[in-house]
Nucleic acid binder design. Structure first.
Length: 440
RNA sequence: GGCCCUAUCGUCUAUCGGUUAGGACAUAAGCUUUUCAAGCUUAGAAGCAGAGUUCGACUCUCUGUAGGGUCACCA
């Protein structure tokens, strides 16, 4: 079992019959980490033999995701639909050697054939070693003579997997635990073909809050759904990696490189784990904190509602100044929508509207005005504005000074502090709004 | 139902026979330079049950219980 001398080859074989599922991404991740960590490679292939469920859209979604999340560019993917002749060769070989046979049947359902190709089950007991689960025992008698192809030109899953893994030189099959019961069939076919048995590692399933396998009825399952909601790809990768695995210490925020370096199959759990969106959300916030301003601006622009962009006073310059506020107040980018809806954004781009009574008092605004007047344009930072005003506010009562100032600037019951607001709005606009308030 | 797998706070997890069972998310309370957000501090919260093995079990064994996966001419 010395893998270090042999080149490790893992694989990620998605089926383009749906958008890339978070569980599939995680499987890809573990295959990728394991291969990279051991100087091996992860191969990709499209299991597209089911033409009824196939869609170009799904295929594009999967291939783009590989690039987006892992930086893997897939040029000419190996696709099973191109390999009909290859499978045919193996099916023939199996039939010729008596390991499979053409079986006449009475179709049970519409679309079923009256003739299929079945594998001749040797009905044996054996066990295989799973790198995560340990020895797993099987009695293949339960499996019967299962169907491996509809006909010579239509090989089915178990056959194609075994043939492809064999021809692609796959050494480690890392896949979800829902494939455990498929493994005995595949091993049987391998042995009938004289193909070597790869190492198997069945990783625990990602569960929904009700502890069942995460599926569409539980809400978002496609990685693209999460992207649309404004989760960062690196946060999703980090989060998914920590389901059923951890580095063995208390780190939780790990980069792709760290993930690769720390990954071992030994540390993968045996039991399924619930996909906790709250924790993902927290993690996403951690990643937003880490984003540089250019990237943050790009994301904000992408998620900023059109109602804000269409405001006559809208400007990217103002948005850039607003970035620290937005960064602080969102966990996922769709939160920007909520900010806009609750009116936490528009007053930066247009004069606020509010009832006079909200100001409580305008008594000290004239003094505020003169203090701000004296501030240098270039030094109009939150820190300096605060320094200038603080003692005065303390003397007159902070609530009497700061609250009206904040309301004059924002028109809102809640908002960032008045110094920050003033700095973002700039000296001119701050004075305008203050004057407006005092004249109200 | 058959077969297979699993079992530590609500959730993700640490512990690889000896710990006051640790951390994170979430929750609650409190603090901070007006409000909101953020931040900080603190608190509550767990070994499925029963037998063994052992000087000593969350940890090893067995049984039970519970949960999950899978039983296609899909992948």
């Amino acid at each position: 079992m010395n893998n270090s001398t042999k080149n490790i080859v893992t694989r990620f074989p998605p089926s383009p019959t749906g958008l890339l599922h978070v569980g599939s991404l995680r499987t890809a991740l573990f295959n990728f980490y394991f291969a990279k960590k051991n100087n091996g490679e992860m191969k990709f292939r499209l299991e597209d033999t089911n033409r009824e469920k196939w869609k170009q859209e799904y295929e594009d979604n999967i291939i783009q995701s590989m690039d987006f999340f892992l930086g893997i560019k897939i040029e000419n993917p190996i696709r099973q639909s191109d390999r009909v002749e290859v499978y045919k060769k193996y099916i023939l070989k199996l039939i010729e050697s008596g390991k499979a046979y053409i079986s006449n049947e009475a179709p049970k359902e519409a679309g079923e054939r009256s003739q299929v190709i079945r594998f001749k089950n040797p009905n044996i007991k054996f066990k295989f070693n799973d790198l995560i689960l340990g020895d797993i025992e099987n009695d293949t008698t339960d499996l019967g003579d299962f169907v491996i192809a509809k006909d010579l030109d239509h090989a089915l899953y178990h056959l194609t997997v075994v043939v492809d893994d064999f021809e692609m030189g796959i050494t480690h099959v890392i896949r979800g635990q829902d494939h455990i019961t498929n493994t005995p069939r595949q091993i049987l076919i391998q042995e009938a073909l004289g193909a070597p048995r790869p190492f198997y590692a069945h990783i625990p399933l990602i569960l929904a809050p009700d502890k069942t396998k995460l599926s569409k009825r539980h809400g978002a399952t496609a990685v693209s759904d999460y992207l649309f909601q404004g989760f960062l790809p690196e946060a999703l990768v980090n989060f998914l990696s920590l389901i059923g695995w951890n580095p063995g210490d208390e780190r939780e925020i790990l980069s792709l490189e760290e993930l690769i370096n720390e990954f071992t199959l030994e540390k993968v759990h045996k039991n399924g784990a619930v996909f906790d969106v709250q924790k993902l959300t927290w993690m996403n916030k951690e990643y937003i904190k880490l984003l540089d301003n250019d990237k943050l601006l790009k994301y904000v622009l992408k998620f900023l509602p059109i109602s804000i962009k269409n405001l006559p006073g809208f400007s990217t310059e103002m948005l850039v100044r607003l970035l620290p506020i937005i960064r602080d107040r969102i966990a996922i980018f769709s939160d920007i929508d909520d900010m806009a809806i609750s009116g936490d954004l528009d007053y930066f781009f247009k004069k606020p509207k509010y009832e006079k009574s909200l100001l409580k008092t305008t008594e000290f605004i004239p003094e505020l005005l003169s203090m701000i007047e004296n501030l240098n344009d270039n030094d109009f930072t939150a820190e300096l504005i605060k320094t200038r005003i603080w003692d005065f506010a303390t003397e007159k009562g902070r609530g009497n000074v700061l609250w009206p100032m904040r309301v004059a600037l924002s028109g809102a019951v809640k908002s960032p502090d008045p110094f920050t607001l003033a700095a973002i709005l700039g000296k001119y606009e701050t004075m305008e709004r203050l004057k407006f308030a005092v004249n109200k």
